[in-house]
Write a protein that binds this DNA or RNA. Structure first.
Lengths: 335, 335
DNA sequence: AACCGGATTGGCAGCGCTGCCAAAAGTCGC
DNA sequence: GCGACTTTTGGCAGCGCTGCCAATCCGGTT
């Protein structure tokens, strides 16, 4: 901790060995608590490390070590603007921290080509695993992941085949459950209000499941509005206004997520429309605010943190290859 | 891209060199586009790389290279549950991506000791820079950062001295501006509603600035409620109920952030209290939903993305050592 | 045709660390 | 006090790549 600061050069393991009066291997063994060492050696090394302020160089360690790094995990998420992904990361980092693995992150902006480039970039750090979001990737991305010699975990979506391990829930099933709930409650003129589907494929799968379940009930979507850009309360608010103008007889709206639904709720408050009397609202995600609303939002709670945690378990090889964590429909008071 | 997959071993630069029929140095030079090379060499290398599916090993590259890694940045945030930090990361990754630097993240959970441990762990990857949140750290963390031979950027808070570079805004000033706004609008019985201050030091600084400005106006806080745990709409809602029960004559509430304020707004809606007639609400952060509310929330918008971007510029050495990005008071309709 | 300067190239040491192996130091029983 | 073990230790090669340097090549000169 002292102010030793060899101008350009950082303290190396060799320096520690010299300072402690032992061999390099001994320092290495002591530091990693691997193999046997005498109490005396441990003490001298600890002293030297403290005196010199030694910080091991894992670049070198991983390079010399067995397969690869095994101490980094590459994570690619499509966005950080949507709470879902920070939550995922939260679960991941929480679980990986405990075993000393750090996450290197990449944000693809929902662009498969950027995802591909990021996959290559992250693999060049020889991570222990590559964590992707969703099941849809460029063929080249899949090839990279396969050839990379790393474990691959795809998170969030279980509607389809994965490269290796898959942890999430069925977005289709969420959509279907949401539709069945609305139908059971007697709503018949149901619209969909979402953000860009080309971009958020999982929202598209929910909608597909939703429409399929409506179909089973002999219904079909009574209007739909797709807003450009990412989801946000502002977008939800504006979208609901458009939708109501176009279909004044709507009795329920299924939103692509809670943020959009919150905006819709605000639009209703502003317009003085009673919820769910005049119009019912149904969201997705089960965010914190949903339960705090004057009328708790009807929505589906997704196991975001748990997906992160299970993905961590997966990459440590402690879990099955395919985990469906399900979801929970929250009845709420808006639908 | 083919299915070459030498059982255990990954493709190395040497393999590429052999395949291309050139020397290792040539491959290295071509791949990094550094030094001169003939067109023919470039073509043969590109071919070999494609044929073998070569992914460079940056662990080795960084180890062999000059100073250190210079391709990784270590980022420590206190939490991922609060939008502020994902926004910060968004700005950071966006700007660093362009120059090929990846972020390795650590989440400290607002614990200085964990922060210290994370700093050591991240430094062991020999990052080009270490990005911390706030200005308060363990002395050991500071020593590590100083000795690590890396650029250090402290983000968000400018109220105090930094280790090296500092990018953010003055939380004290935010608090003071908020207080002055409320006072100017005629509110006199103002309470504070926040989450754990021991933990979120920046919220504490805002409160200090707020109280100081109240003092200048001859006022003092008319009640305060500190909720345990992280901020959330639920906590804000419950907190406001407590506060109103205790101080029925309150005319305004300053919240530790917009999430808390949203909960407060919901509490008012539920209780049928008119806002801001009966009670005024003032938040902090300027989140998306604030503008979509039936009455836009009065709050302060903070340049979160921009802080991330500027921090990136800082660590690339393109910026001054201290950047105050200011903030914007949004008058809104709730105070 | 011999020569010259710049462009291009390959060999090789070495970045800091770990794994392997043989040497050295302890331990124990008799 | 001595051999047979077991524990602890240090030397050294080598992980995959880059920087350095000397060798080679090329085109145009004289």
């Amino acid at each position: 901790m002292d102010e030793f600061q060899p101008p350009g050069r950082l303290v190396t393991l060799t320096d520690v060995a010299r300072e402690a009066g032992v061999g390099e291997s001994t320092v290495s063994r002591v530091l990693r608590n691997h193999g046997s060492s005498s109490k005396r050696a441990r003490e001298r090394v600890a002293e030297a490390v403290a005196r010199l302020g030694y910080v091991p160089n894992r670049l070198a360690g991983s390079l010399a070590g067995p397969g690869a790094s095994a101490q980094l995990a590459g994570v690619i998420v499509p966005s950080l603007a949507n709470v879902v992904f920070p939550d995922l990361l939260r679960g991941l980092t929480g679980a990986l921290d405990a075993v000393g693995i750090r996450c290197v992150i990449g944000v693809s902006d929902y662009d498969p080509d950027r995802e591909e480039a990021l996959a290559a970039a992250l693999l060049s750090w020889r991570p222990a695993a590559l964590l992707l979001t969703g099941l849809e990737h460029n063929p080249a991305t899949v090839a990279l992941a396969r050839a990379g010699g790393v474990r691959v975990v795809e998170m969030i979506d279980t509607d389809g085949a994965g490269i290796d391990a898959v942890v999430g829930f069925s977005n289709r099933a969420v959509g279907a459950a949401s539709a069945r709930h609305l139908v059971a409650r007697g709503y018949r003129r149901i619209a969909y209000l979402g953000h860009d589907l080309q971009v958020d494929l999982r929202a598209g799968k929910r909608l597909a499941g939703f429409e399929a379940a409506l179909g089973e009930a002999g219904l079909s979507l009574h209007g739909r509005e797709i807003r450009p850009g990412p989801s946000s309360p502002g977008s939800g608010r504006a979208g609901l206004e458009v939708l109501l103008a176009r279909h004044p007889d709507l009795d329920a709206v299924y939103f692509s997520n809670d943020d959009m639904a919150l905006g819709g709720y605000f639009a209703c408050l502003s317009a003085g429309l009673s919820v769910p009397g005049r119009i019912a609202l149904f969201g997705f995600n089960g965010l914190d605010f949903a339960a705090a609303m004057p009328q708790p939002l009807s929505t589906v709670r997704t196991p975001r943190l748990e997906i992160g945690r299970q993905a961590a378990a997966c990459l440590l090889g402690e879990s099955p290859k395919r985990i469906d964590l399900g979801f929970e429909l929250i009845e709420g008071a808006t639908a």
